[in-house]
Design a protein around this nucleic acid. Structure first.
Lengths: 159, 159
DNA sequence: ATAGTCAATTCCCTTTCGGAACTCAATGGG
DNA sequence: CCCATTGAGTTCCGAAAGGGAATTGACTAT
């Protein structure tokens, strides 16, 4: 199977990665979350080639993750902004931050801390059951393949 | 900047992606979470080339995300299992599932549902503040760069 | 003896990446 | 006017990575 067919698989992880799973793409999105919007700034921040950045942005625009909006005329210049679909990637980014903080931080500790505006706490958000509110880990969840999902046997990999 | 230098950047997203940000890698990890452990099965499930699978697994073993354990002798055969570091990627996978379910599901709905063993609820876990327990979205969190983080100005991209 | 299993590895050709230079429209300074 | 600069790309080319298929090697089952 080629990578460009990955979005056709009936699996939400595969489909999500078909859109944001290319190299650099999630870093572009990280920078957009950090408030960078212009091509030039993104390119300098990431150090990626202009060519690749242009291509990634174009794909994200096609997929409605990002929108390209003019911010001046004569000459018309465009900037890139996250759409609602793009903003909804926040949990993905935050999950990566959490993992990177835990397993790859250097001795100086995490480079960025996160403060919850609601209560003021400085701590990474964690996954909780939407129903009962308890924190959940991998072993607490039981996946249930639906009809037509190409039924795969489930063996608990965490046990 | 080349992709293979991305892990050296002082950013947890970049470091995480340096390890699991290659094409196919998170799909390999998805399959490991689904209980697949053997090379042959992974290859058939993913449809990726054997060459690439071998390479990705080797890198994951190097990074201690996966361990290669013998499951028989004569001839010695190995299988691949998630380590604690690997299992800790669950929130990343789940965040991708949630996003894929929401934005890329077809008319038949999500291919897999998740049941919380604790309370029996069938629902995707969501991000909550670890302190106060309230659900959080992108706009609820304020990132605070720490000293030496290459101070970047923060503009709220969701506003 | 022959076929099959499993985990790779090798070959070869195509696609993608990385680095640098170039384009185009407009603006600012001398 | 002439020249340099800015911003957002585009073009070009050699290098690296990916994909498809066949092969290897150590066994096991029939």
């Amino acid at each position: 199977m080629r990578w460009d067919e990955i979005g056709e698989v009936r699996c939400s992880v595969a489909r999500a990665l078909g859109i944001v799973g290319d190299r650099w793409t999630l870093l572009v999105i990280r920078d957009l979350f950090l408030g960078l919007r212009r091509f030039e700034r993104l390119q300098r921040s990431l150090g990626v080639t202009r060519h690749l950045l242009a291509e990634r942005l174009e794909k994200l625009v096609e997929q409605s993750v990002v929108e390209r909006v003019p911010y001046q005329e004569k000459p018309t210049r465009y900037e890139y902004r996250l759409t609602e679909k793009g903003i909804d990637l926040y949990p993905v980014l935050l999950a990566l931050v959490r993992w990177g903080d835990r397993w790859e931080a250097d001795s100086a500790g995490p480079p960025v801390l996160y403060r919850h505006k609601g209560c003021g706490a400085v701590a990474m958000p964690t996954l909780h059951c939407a129903q009962c509110g308890e924190p959940v880990a991998a072993r607490d969840m039981q996946p249930q393949p639906q009809p037509g999902a190409g039924a795969r046997r489930w063996t608990d990999p965490t046990g």
